[in-house]
């Protein structure tokens, strides 16, 4: 169907519309994964700090 790479990239003159649609979907999914992973890291760090504060009540009060 495609005779060359440039023909594939040109998408019959619809390159901007086709690639921005597919590209934005890929970008949105990647960003969402990164957001959830950083949320998980933040939550785990907070839980670890709370646990440490419980283990050493004297020091944390000073």
């Amino acid at each position: 169907m495609w005779n060359s790479v440039s023909e594939f990239l040109a998408m019959g003159g619809y390159a901007l519309y086709v690639w921005s649609s597919f590209g934005l979907c890929a970008i949105a999914f990647c960003i969402e994964v990164l957001i959830v992973r950083s949320q998980r890291k933040t939550t785990l760090r907070r839980l670890r700090q709370a646990l440490l504060a419980d283990q050493y009540p004297q020091e944390s009060r000073q």
Partner: peptide, 18 residues
């Protein structure tokens, strides 16, 4: 690579797949 070009909308119709 499998779905052929659309008779009316050309290659632009491929947006349908997302």
């Amino acid at each position: 690579f499998v779905a052929p070009v659309d008779a009316v909308q050309g290659q632009g119709y491929r947006i349908i797949f997302v």
